[in-house]
Design a protein around this nucleic acid. Structure first.
Lengths: 343, 343
DNA sequence: TTGAAAGCGCTAACAG
DNA sequence: CTGTTAGCGCTTTCAA
């Protein structure tokens, strides 16, 4: 499987390899007649340039490394699409690695990408708190790094994330504006984002004078294939004993959909009897009916911005870092409505 | 951002680059003391070998190119996970490209991967009928190619696919066994898999003596974020004029969910009034309620097998090809039931 | 057990 | 405008 090289083309066209290189890259003047000869030879030989060799030479790579926990959660798939939409148009390709939610694996991914000489790395939902942060500092000094939705900040790394504190508040205010007071908080375990949201929730509810710690439900795994069903079961168990609850705030859309399913099983009408807020606005949230009211996490923008931040970093030879904060916006759909008891 | 090279290590350890290479690769004997010196230098300098240079030299690559239409349908994400589970353990990385359902783009992806010198390409759901098949032959002669769920077969390409003909038949038989006769076929455009499902459908319905070309609905984009809604709208339009239709066979689960939504909007009870079959068994199919009856496409196995077939091809220097056929199995859930008019 | 050196395919001075 | 040549970082003969 020996492939044709620039030398073969040069021989066939009876010119030097430099000339071939010139017509391929179009970066230096070449006489029209010569160019034609070369182009012909390229076509005859079905020559395709070897980018690896080119990039070894130019000391420049056009591959972006991506680190995701998995693609199973469409949140990540949507972010990757956002990255792709930016990077493809700038001539970059995507090298994809999986952490499987394992910090050790995450380190390996980084090393792997470094060896492959990618021009930069985008890490979606890094496990910063579980990996020695000096590791990230060290990495950041070697290669442009952009983190998406990371909670720890290091000076040499660029970040894009949503302000989920404000987003949570907006969501809760929406429910309150509809007259809800007994709002149940549904979360998963082991993610800073749940902690943040819970903090905001507790403070908010206390200020309203209707905080009740029993209204916090933890469904354990928050991003697994089982999250929907886990949530549904928990709520089917919980709700019958808590008739006063009129709304659910769910930390992500999987939980939101689980809540919808639970209420259906309990023969509750949505949103007449009970209101449900999701979070993320993954496609699932509008695939189901009633369509889920949720907070948009701007996945496409997240990915797109991450890619553009990475380009900035590459352009500045990794000398600059920047942070971009996006705002979650309320996506009003069919699962929230006026509180029954206040009608 | 100059990174440390093998030369730096050699200098620091006061040995030749060849020796460093030997300890890095562990493929030739090196005296213990020397090895220790080198290892120390590597650690001090935080040396990471440049795989691009290595592979340029060894004429061997350890990257697998993947071509997907998009990641919006989790079908693809799940297949990619299957590929990943095999390839990572064999030391291969994944270069991901998107066709956006565009045959031109698909060709570009192939070229892009070829230029990047990947060791082989896995194409998930190729668009074979719209691309000049000589293009694929030509590609196959240059680089190991594995197609997943492809329609056309070329001798130099390896294939894994589900026998969707039999699967489609099983699905249709399931509907017929419930008494359905006027079964509507819902497909998208531009994918081989729709074509052969339609073939089977037509033949099947003709044999039953109830084929009606008007019962074939094309929702256009079959794998986009809009597929669910597109399908729902089409069916909401279609169904009121076709009261005789009692069941839908949908070419994938996105369409299946769209059909469920449509029937709900029309106040039809599922499965009492109407039955719906999906196809794929993506997670979405059991996230919604009623949970979708569907055909399992073994996405993980599909991906895993594709990767192993690719390894075979690489090992044989692209001299051998093989085909693996998997069977779709019926996943009985809540959206199919006895035909009303036959009750 | 080690080093010197050729070369993987390509680009970019430099010289003509 | 075009050819010659020196590498990019690495592996691997071939000699020592």
């Amino acid at each position: 499987m020996k492939s044709t090289t620039i030398i073969d083309v040069a021989k066939k066209a009876q010119v030097s390899v430099a000339t071939v290189s010139r017509v391929v890259n179009g970066n230096y003047p070449v006489k029209e007649a010569t160019k034609k000869k070369v182009l012909e030879a390229i076509k005859d030989l079905e020559y395709i340039p070897n980018i690896q060799a080119r990039e070894l030479n130019t000391q420049h790579s056009s591959i972006i490394g991506i680190i995701v926990p998995s693609l199973f959660n469409t949140f990540f798939a949507e972010v990757v699409s956002g990255i792709e939409s930016f990077s493809t148009s700038s001539g970059y390709s995507l090298l994809l690695t999986y952490t499987k939610d394992d910090p050790i694996c995450e380190k390996e991914c980084m090393n792997e990408l470094l060896m492959r000489n990618v021009s930069g790395i985008i890490n979606i939902s890094p496990n910063t708190e579980r990996v020695d942060s000096s590791f990230f500092d060290q990495m950041a000094s070697r290669i442009p790094l952009v983190f998406i939705n990371s909670y720890i900040k290091r000076p040499a790394i660029s970040y894009v994330y949503n302000d989920e504190r404000i987003g949570t508040k907006i969501a809760l205010e929406h429910l309150v504006s509809l007259g809800h007071q007994n709002i149940c908080f549904v979360r998963g375990e082991r993610s800073d984002s749940y902690e943040f949201k819970e903090d905001v929730y507790i403070e908010f509810m206390k200020k309203m004078g209707c905080y009740n710690p029993e209204n916090i439900i933890n469904v354990s795994a928050g991003n697994s294939i089982d999250t929907v069903e886990l949530t549904a079961k928990k709520i089917v168990e919980f709700l019958p004993n808590r008739k006063d609850v009129t709304a659910f705030f769910c930390c992500n859309d999987l939980m939101g959909v689980g809540a919808v399913n639970a209420c259906r099983r309990l023969n509750l009408k949505i949103p007449e009897d009970i209101s449900i807020m999701g979070y993320d606005n993954v496609s699932l949230s509008h695939f189901i009916e009633p369509k889920l009211t949720t907070m948009d996490q701007n996945m496409m923008t997240l990915g797109w911005t991450a890619a553009s931040l990475l380009m900035e970093k590459i352009a500045s030879d990794n000398k600059t870092s920047r942070q971009v904060v996006l705002q979650n916006t309320l996506v009003l759909r069919d699962t929230t409505g006026p509180c029954k008891t206040n009608k």
